[in-house]
Design a protein around this nucleic acid. Structure first.
Lengths: 133, 133
DNA sequence: ATTATTATTGCAACTTGGTTGCATTATGAC
DNA sequence: GTCATAATGCAACCAAGTTGCAATAATAAT
């Protein structure tokens, strides 16, 4: 956590551990319920999460029901600062997975020379995840 | 509006007109401020918009600040029921454009044979729009 | 045209995810 | 250990969107 310029605190250690253990992106509520026993203030959790995002340790995904999910960056994205992966939303369990993208800038294809200058892209997929079919 | 199974009302006509006149997807607030004079209740507008979405006339896009934008379907999507276009978010003016996608199922590429069954996808691009550079 | 049926409208109250202000506490540089 | 600075916890707050319900307007039936 040091190398990201963050002070090492109890709250951050706990939240980081929870994020590391999860295959899917987690909501504020998800994380809170996973902190059994020694509670964590909801505001602290909000701030912990956004400190992770600002530091480039994690990223957030907006859901359909206007909440944020958080997930650590994929291993191959560390130190890059770029977020280049797809989000997969499972129709059944509603989980959101971060999947690596093997892409040679697909974003540039559909609308080049239309006046739109593309700097980044997000790819969101819906369907059924491995544990739901 | 009849062919979509919706009663033709004042509110719906006004909102539909506003959506038709806009190049970009509009927020609840955007639409409300464009109804000069004869007011429209905010709840009515919420319900009008979701009636459009349910009827397959429009669709909604989630923004980064957890609100919904609404836009009519692109001409080529009418009567299809499928929503197959990219969303372009301008970094400067924050507008969201709906752009037609010329795609041969790009979604299938990145993660096939990984256990994820893809049913639909959304492609979101960020950058600078034509009127901002 | 009039009436009956049914969906839409408008208002107030409410829900919920998230934020702000501020005093208290803990971290890490010295 | 001391100190500056950042993180925490609490309460109050904010804003987007929803719910319940009575009043009203749009279509269908007569």
């Amino acid at each position: 956590m040091h190398q990201y310029g963050l002070k090492v605190t109890n709250a951050r250690i706990k939240v980081l551990r929870i994020l590391m253990q999860s295959q899917v992106a987690l909501s504020h509520g998800d994380i809170l319920t996973r902190i059994h026993g020694n509670e964590l203030d909801k505001v602290t959790l909000y701030r912990t999460l956004s400190s992770f995002v600002n530091a480039g340790l994690a990223h957030k995904v907006a859901t359909e029901d206007r909440t944020w999910l958080h997930a650590l960056h994929l291993p191959e994205e560390r130190n890059e600062g770029v977020e280049d992966h797809a989000h997969f939303v499972c129709d059944t369990c509603e989980c959101i997975y971060c999947l690596p993208l093997v892409t040679e800038d697909m974003a540039a294809i559909p609308i080049k020379e239309s006046g739109f200058q593309i700097k980044s892209h997000e790819y969101r997929l819906r369907g059924t995840c491995p544990s739901c079919h």
